[in-house]
Design a protein around this nucleic acid. Sequence first.
DNA 1: AATGAATGAGTATTCATTCAT
DNA 2: TATGAATGAATACTCATTCAT
Lengths: 222, 222, 222, 222
Amino acid sequence: MSVSKQFSLVDQEKSDQETPAVDRGAELLAAATAVFAQKGFHDTKVSDIVTAAGVAQGTFYLYFKGKNDVFFRLISGCCERILDQLGKASAIQRQATTAEEAHQNSFASLVGIFRMLESEQSVLKLILADPGGVDPAIDKMLAGLRETMVGQVRQNLQAGIDAGYLRDLNPTIVAEAVVGMIYHLSFERFVRGRDLGVDLEELAEEVVTFERHGIFKSPPAR
Amino acid sequence: MSVSKQFSLVDQEKSDQETPAVDRGAELLAAATAVFAQKGFHDTKVSDIVTAAGVAQGTFYLYFKGKNDVFFRLISGCCERILDQLGKASAIQRQATTAEEAHQNSFASLVGIFRMLESEQSVLKLILADPGGVDPAIDKMLAGLRETMVGQVRQNLQAGIDAGYLRDLNPTIVAEAVVGMIYHLSFERFVRGRDLGVDLEELAEEVVTFERHGIFKSPPAR
Amino acid sequence: MSVSKQFSLVDQEKSDQETPAVDRGAELLAAATAVFAQKGFHDTKVSDIVTAAGVAQGTFYLYFKGKNDVFFRLISGCCERILDQLGKASAIQRQATTAEEAHQNSFASLVGIFRMLESEQSVLKLILADPGGVDPAIDKMLAGLRETMVGQVRQNLQAGIDAGYLRDLNPTIVAEAVVGMIYHLSFERFVRGRDLGVDLEELAEEVVTFERHGIFKSPPAR
Amino acid sequence: MSVSKQFSLVDQEKSDQETPAVDRGAELLAAATAVFAQKGFHDTKVSDIVTAAGVAQGTFYLYFKGKNDVFFRLISGCCERILDQLGKASAIQRQATTAEEAHQNSFASLVGIFRMLESEQSVLKLILADPGGVDPAIDKMLAGLRETMVGQVRQNLQAGIDAGYLRDLNPTIVAEAVVGMIYHLSFERFVRGRDLGVDLEELAEEVVTFERHGIFKSPPAR
DNA sequence: AATGAATGAGTATTCATTCAT
DNA sequence: TATGAATGAATACTCATTCAT
């Protein structure tokens, strides 16, 4: 969206009285994101959003059906982007042929996911702290997101078990556990802003290593 | 209502028509817990609570300062009980002298925590899905709870590192990860009601094993 | 309602701190009637009604579901009373055994109806000038009222035809025509306040005579 | 109206790609009539009208001062046409020299009026169900229409009384009654669409006969 | 003439809280 | 203590109208 805006800027300079170079819908969505992130869904008034966007009350309803609608679009846009990233991560992960490669790929995937979540900070807050009940469609979408993540991890685990290099773990439970880690660490880092004393790569490396080897000193070797 | 009042007359010995034997405050708190759990904070009206408790609207304000107040007491009561359990778990964990004992103790601790969370299902939902912003005091309390959990795990990890039987992991990050797992699994199981195909002991066992050994087949032995 | 009020007045004087002798619901309904009659449905704001009743906005919603609800109750209450009166009128009319008696009974009935409509002036305005579309239930009720009136007139006509003293007219059309007269004259007199130069009895007499004999000089006599 | 525009086509030819041969004002008025008839005044939005007419929102205000203005023009156009027809009817009625002729003329007049009302169905609905209060000018116009009708009937009646062939009735009241009949029957037939089991001529005949002779079997003859 | 994006005044309704009995 | 009627501030949403292009 912001991309198309940048392009359109170029185009719109040419003609004299063309449509203004503003995308009110995008402006409003941006304003809404900021306000929701700061105040949360329930404490955000439509009037806050329009004030932040610098337009009149009515203008809001030209672009959104209502408060729930903006919220939904916010979340759903973000979810799509996350799912995208998840797809990429999954593709990367499947390419591994050696254990070393698998580690590297897991690492790369996780870094990718973290980076994307970092760029979605403000919406992430809303996703992770969703009060629920705002809109069943949102709940469904978030549940789907989680399920997708868990599903991918589970499949990878199952593949490893089948291939014989993973132990006989319960893939469902471990997958949930892994997703739990990632959610929690993302929340701490991107929503609460705690850097935990490491940079993103170090964080990902630590997580991947923990996931693969646990907390014990590997007796002989990995 | 009037019936229970009549019976209580018998119990309340000191003066003739003194306080009834019912604890209105507790009744209201119980009613509030049920309603909040079902509808969430924002969709719960004070009128829902008093209806559920079978008292008049005004009675509510005899026992609570307001809607935020009940919510706070609910959460804070639950947090205290969780912290209690956490203390016990910690005590257990520290007693280990061998790796095998440590595993058993971790397992026992986790089962204890899970059991307690299970018994707090309805409030757990509110704690884990806290929209935030309802009351800074609540946020602080929940943050404290998390911090306590993370702190305990971190200390255990540090102890293990110092003792030389844990690898050179980052205790802060791993502790957060472990808490993330537990939060997420608790949420899935107790709030969303998914049993994940195992009973509580199996769940705890799986988690502890995962934490300790990761996903790989332990090459020679544990 | 007003009856119970009058009784209750008696009772309430005795006891000290009983419920106040006011029926807020009735007060609001009265206020609403007045305001609706003056401004019509669409130009009446709930705030007008509560101001007229001297209560707060919220109080209104303690007694009515909303603006449509008051309007409906207003209309429906009035319709009931009219239907009542119509029933009485019908009973009177059926008792006639001679033509002269029939005339007298028609006259008495019509006077009764006129008097009742006069006492319902303010609501009558709303009934006769119903914009439609406010509430399907209201439309149905008004249609029923009209149908009842027309039906009664039609039956009387049919009875007269069968008995042989009325000419071979089309009872359906004439019944509609008669009701049209009565509606229109009621509207002019009670809603627009034109007395048409006669008192109510004279008006009824004129109408009954017109209905029975038309405009011509009865050649010989009836 | 569209006719006058077609003539204007001749004038518009001058320039090549000038204004199209359409009369936007007439189009909008037609669209407005249809929408108002279907939804009533208050439930009709300007946006409904422009959508129906296939023009932009702003275009509406090029031809009308506002929503009230279209409504006024609609009603007033229709009223003019009705008054026209009423004039013709009156002219016809005055030509009678015998009672039989008078009957025939009344019949012809009424048929003419019914036919015209039938052709104005959609606006008739608005006229007869006018909630009032939309615009004082409209109320005045409708009152004038009614007054004209009543006046004509009254004059005819008075003439008949003076001429000695009508009985000593109250012309004011009977005139109102007659107009009431016609209004009501028109409403039932043209607005509510009930044909009452007869065609328009039969309806008119029945009404005229009822008006002239009432419901009784004419003892000897008319 | 035509457009349609923008405006913002206007209003019904909810619900936490109070307080007179 | 208990009641529950009354309060009124707070807010989402509509739609007639304007005006820059």
